[in-house]
Every structure is written in C-alpha cells, then in structure tokens.
Simulated assay, not measured.
Amino acid sequence: MYTPAAFRFEHATDMISFMKQYSFATIITVKEGLPIATHLPFQVVEQEGKLLLRSHFAAANEQATAITSAPSLIIFSEPHAYISPAEYDKRESVPTWNYMAVHAYGTATLIREEKQVLSLLEEMIREVEPSYLEQWNGLSDKYRNGMMKGIVAFEILVTDLQGKKKLSQNKTATERDRIITRLESEGDAAAKQLAQHMRMG
C-alpha cells in the first residue's frame, strides 16, 4: 500500500485496534491468475505473539478452494470522507479524500475439526450478539451440524501488516480544525467517526 511517511500508523498495536473496531473486511485471493474477493466478518486474535485472523466462507464460494494455495490480502477500511479545498488557506488547493485502512497479508489454514469450527462460531456470536448464544445452544444438533457443513472455516497467520491513516496531517492546525468542524457538522456517520479519529491524532 502506498503510504507516505506522514500518513503511517506509528504502532502495530494501533493497527490491530483499528482492525478490531472495523472487523468487517475484504479478503482477496488470486485463483488462476485472477483476483477474487469476499466480504467477511473477522475475528482478530492476538495469541502467543502471533496475529491471527479467523472467519469462514460459504462452502459454495470458489474462494474457499483457493485460499490455502497462495497468500491472501485482507483489507480493513473505514471510515472515509471527502475533504473540500474550501477548508484550506491557499486558493491553489485541490480536493482529496481522508481515510484509514489496514492491509494484512498471510496464508490461510483450513479449520476442519468440528469442535474448532463450533468454537469459532460461538466466539463470533459472543463478540457480535452475546444474547443470541442461548438461542444458538437451544437449536437441535442436526440443524447446527447441517449449518456447519455449509461453511469452510479458516485461520490466517498474519505475516505482514501495513496501515495508513490519511487524516490531513500535512495541513496546518487551523486547517485541520476547520476540516474536523465540517466533518462533525455532516449527517454522515462515517464523517463523524473520521473527525473523531482526527481529534485523537
């Protein structure tokens, strides 16, 4: 990812926190020379000094058959917003877009053992909707097992992590304040989130 020095995440811990906050990501894999992509929720797990990404495909998804053959790219991206040159001091300015993104690279291992697949699903339920766990546990084994046969679970060991936060760091404090005020005044939730990240630096 093209990342000028001014726009880099300073610490890996900040990138990991970002991934956990915006965990619905895009996984890209190359199959027979062509990139294919799927949008999935990911569990971001730090374990024994390793960074792991866990999720699952629908079994019918062709990407499930290609994911172990080569490294994949997982893109975590959000929020973003248009930045008008009206907020800058100089008339000779152009529009741009502020955004944050983290790219994670790694090769997947399939999770085939039924207990591990069940554990992955239950961990995701606990993260996203803990109240559903009681209903999930009340479903028949036949139904749950049938649902699990319809997915392909996997785990990716992250081998490279790249992050970019383009938050007008190359502008003056006055210009940044104007941009933040404009973003906060907009009705768009992503713009408001971006303004919050800008305030945090």
Rank of each mutant, 00 (worst) to 15 (best):
residue 189 A to F: 10
residue 140 S to I: 07
residue 96 T to S: 06
residue 189 A to M: 12
residue 129 E to C: 12
residue 120 L to F: 03
residue 100 M to T: 08
residue 117 V to G: 05
residue 58 A to L: 14
residue 97 W to D: 05
residue 191 A to I: 08
residue 49 G to W: 08
residue 171 K to A: 03
residue 18 F to E: 05
residue 49 G to D: 06
residue 129 E to I: 15
residue 71 P to A: 00
residue 197 H to I: 10
residue 35 P to Y: 07
residue 170 N to R: 05
residue 4 P to S: 02
residue 178 R to P: 03
residue 173 A to M: 15
residue 183 L to Y: 06
residue 11 H to I: 09
residue 83 I to R: 03
residue 167 L to C: 02
residue 60 A to V: 12
residue 117 V to C: 13
residue 125 I to N: 02
residue 48 E to G: 06
residue 169 Q to P: 01
residue 188 D to Y: 11
residue 196 Q to M: 10
residue 143 Y to T: 11
residue 189 A to G: 10
residue 43 Q to P: 08
residue 52 L to G: 01
residue 163 G to M: 00
residue 33 G to K: 07
residue 198 M to R: 01
residue 41 P to L: 09
residue 105 Y to L: 07
residue 12 A to M: 08
residue 67 I to A: 00
residue 84 S to G: 03
residue 112 R to D: 13
residue 96 T to Y: 02
residue 82 Y to S: 04
residue 88 Y to I: 04
residue 116 Q to I: 07
residue 24 F to G: 00
residue 85 P to F: 04
residue 195 A to V: 00
residue 22 Y to N: 09
residue 174 T to Y: 07
residue 1 M to Y: 12
residue 129 E to T: 10
residue 108 A to V: 05
residue 9 F to T: 04
residue 18 F to T: 05
residue 161 L to Y: 03
residue 5 A to W: 00
residue 101 A to L: 09
residue 60 A to R: 14
residue 150 G to I: 03
residue 90 K to I: 04
residue 10 E to P: 00
residue 146 G to Q: 03
residue 112 R to Q: 14
residue 73 L to S: 04
residue 121 L to I: 15
residue 103 H to L: 06
residue 137 N to Q: 15
residue 125 I to G: 01
residue 166 K to V: 02
residue 43 Q to A: 15
residue 21 Q to P: 05
residue 20 K to D: 01
residue 187 G to F: 09
residue 185 S to I: 12
residue 164 K to G: 00
residue 112 R to Y: 09
residue 162 Q to T: 08
residue 193 Q to Y: 10
residue 113 E to G: 02
residue 4 P to D: 00
residue 2 Y to A: 00
residue 121 L to H: 10
residue 201 G to D: 13
residue 7 F to D: 07
residue 16 I to T: 07
residue 129 E to Y: 13
residue 59 A to N: 12
residue 23 S to W: 10
residue 68 T to I: 12
residue 120 L to Y: 04
residue 182 R to C: 11
residue 201 G to Y: 08
residue 95 P to F: 04
residue 175 E to L: 01
residue 149 K to A: 08
residue 135 Q to T: 11
residue 169 Q to M: 08
residue 34 L to T: 12
residue 122 E to C: 02
residue 94 V to T: 12
residue 113 E to R: 13
residue 170 N to E: 13
residue 134 E to P: 00
residue 195 A to L: 06
residue 3 T to F: 03
residue 110 L to P: 01
residue 97 W to N: 03
residue 187 G to Y: 08
residue 105 Y to S: 03
residue 137 N to T: 08
residue 51 L to D: 04
